[in-house]
């Protein structure tokens, strides 16, 4: 559906994306990376809002030239911080956006109900919580019904129930379309993503299934120790978790070698794997 061939993106002297290669078909693709890794830049290019500095982009087998009108028509982006008019109601916003994009309205009431917005979709957006506004954005994205949906941290501000509703619906709609969403919530990736792209400093450092990412994890170790042990480990290995379990007692989890005699092996998690591939940058 969409193919990136050695795509670079630079802002003046700063390189935001470096030789990014991938091909995306239908399904759910999670985009992971630290702040500044280039996730939003990548989504902007996928949405046809930003142009690459070098490389080639293909949509349905056709190389995209200067115009991105076709790409914009095929995609719907939900930005991370959707800026809305606080005086406009959720229903009016969704209607306006669909009209702007010349998309059919479909059964909006069903979507509002699905996302628990039936009682609030006629209230001004300024009076709604951040999570509720985010759900209005999700209604717009799903109502737009384009072949490609791009979601920038869509679960931000959603409570666990809302998140569950979202992931259930996402799994349903992804059967015949491409959904790319960036997130910092590794639990979301484990729950629904079929494929994970990990960006680090503008480069693509992983492209595969969550299981492939897990397989790349170095040995994981867990041990308990005092403050001295914790400090010592922190300076020698990549600690992925530290929990205080008592007075001057900590449980630590790290990647790599068994540098502490009392350590025992542990099952790697996707969070461990993500930290491992994105390195040790501070």
């Amino acid at each position: 559906m969409i193919r990136f061939d050695k795509v670079d993106k630079s802002f003046r002297s700063h390189s935001a994306l470096r030789e990014v290669d991938f091909e995306l078909a239908t399904g759910i693709v999670a985009l992971l990376g630290r702040n500044g890794a280039g996730k939003s830049t990548l989504l902007s290019i996928l949405a046809g809002l930003a142009a690459e500095s070098a490389g080639t982009i293909w949509l349905d087998g056709t190389e995209l030239r200067r115009s991105r009108r076709v790409l914009r028509a095929a995609t719907t982006l939900l930005p991370q911080d959707l800026r809305v008019d606080p005086k406009v109601t959720g229903r009016a916003l969704v209607h306006y956006l669909l009209k702007l994009r010349r998309r059919p309205f479909g059964d909006l009431d069903e979507l509002f109900a699905l996302f628990g917005l039936t009682g609030v979709c006629d209230r001004p957006l300024g009076s709604l919580s951040g999570g509720t506004r985010q759900r209005v954005g999700l209604v717009y994205v799903f109502a737009a019904d384009t072949p490609v949906l791009l979601l920038d941290e869509p679960t931000q501000g959603l409570d666990p129930w809302e998140r569950l509703r979202f992931t259930e619906y996402l799994a349903r709609v992804a059967a015949d379309r491409l959904v790319v969403y960036s997130t910092h919530v590794v639990a979301d990736v484990e729950a629904i993503a079929e494929r994970v792209l990990v960006l680090d400093q503008g480069g693509l450092v992983h492209d595969g299934s969550p299981q492939d990412l897990l397989a790349r994890t170095p040995p994981v170790w867990v041990a308990e120790g005092d403050q001295e042990v914790a400090s010592s480990l922190g300076s020698r290995v990549l600690v992925t978790a530290m929990k205080r379990i008592g007075d001057d007692s900590y449980r630590l989890r790290w990647l790599g070698e068994r540098v502490y005699g009392h350590a025992r092996p542990a099952e790697p998690s996707l969070s461990d794997a993500y930290i491992a591939v994105t390195g040790e940058r501070a």
Partner: peptide, 20 residues
């Protein structure tokens, strides 16, 4: 330019939330 994707302001603004 013929396509707004090539306007510099669009790219910078869209990516501003991610520091890039």
């Amino acid at each position: 330019p013929r396509d707004i994707a090539w306007l510099p302001w669009t790219a910078v603004e869209d990516a501003s939330d991610d520091s890039i």
